[in-house]
Amino acid sequence: MADEDRRHVLWRAVSGAAGSPGQGTWGRSVCRNCVAALTGIDAAALTLRATASAQDLLGASADWAALLEDHQYTLGEGPGISAFTQGDPVLIDDLAAADHQWPAFTDAAQSAGVAAVFAFPLQLGAIALGTLDLYRRTPGALSPIAAAEAAALADLIALVLLTKADRAQTTDPDWIRRTGSYHDVHIATGMLAARQHISLADAFTRLRAHAFVRGHTVLDVARDVIARRIDINELSE
């Protein structure tokens, strides 16, 4: 396929996604299109990140990929977080050899049958929005062509998101975060901070610790807090 035709394929993978940017259907459609467009990828997840400890899942091509994004959020480590903080792709062709970097995440990923992860930052200039995380069940490096196309897809996704933000007359991606899968975490964090008179950062740390100790995700704990299935007082230090 000619280079120009290939560029059209990549652009259609993003621009032809169902739904509108900021909606779960759009993020899921983009991820599925990325898996179809890239060679050697079994699943993809699209995650907005404000900091290493604040993220929102826009969509994933498979439930197990979404769960791995939850694990990165709960554990505070993983290739997506590293790619976001460093501003460069993180390409792990064999997770078994990378357990020293993110031991807890590596255990979770391998338990899910994942052998390789490739995380690409959603970044245009100085504006960093999140990551496109690609998962594969067999070890091995991306081909140079696939790596270049994955980076191009990440740039196109960032462009679409920023264009939407510009039309909304804001450079803050909160318009997306309000519809993200982790909106419940923000609500529960605020509830905990208000009830215990602590900062939002401390409240989130307590949510994460509670989730880790019980083997749950932060999102699950947040929803339990909102539904009053967990007494907020249980989350004190």
Rank of each mutant, 00 (worst) to 15 (best):
T179H: 15
L134T: 09
A194W: 15
A13I: 03
Y182M: 10
V225E: 04
L219T: 12
A65P: 08
A36N: 13
M191C: 13
G78S: 01
L156N: 00
D5W: 06
G27M: 03
W102P: 04
A126V: 14
Y135W: 07
A98W: 12
A62E: 09
L58D: 00
H71I: 04
T25N: 05
E4H: 13
Q123E: 12
Q196N: 04
R167G: 14
G113W: 03
P103Q: 00
Q196K: 06
F120D: 02
M191T: 13
V30K: 02
R49C: 02
D133R: 01
D94Q: 01
H216W: 04
G59S: 04
R12H: 07
R178M: 09
D174F: 08
A211P: 10
V30P: 05
L235F: 13
L57W: 00
D3W: 07
G140R: 15
A116Y: 01
A98R: 11
L134E: 00
D155M: 09
G215W: 12
K164F: 10
D63T: 09
A119L: 00
D88A: 10
V185C: 15
S15Y: 10
L67P: 03
P121V: 05
P121Y: 09
H216E: 05
A201F: 00
A2R: 10
G78Y: 06
D231Q: 08
R28G: 08
T163P: 01
S236R: 15
R208F: 05
I226E: 12
G80W: 02
S82C: 03
T217N: 06
R208H: 10
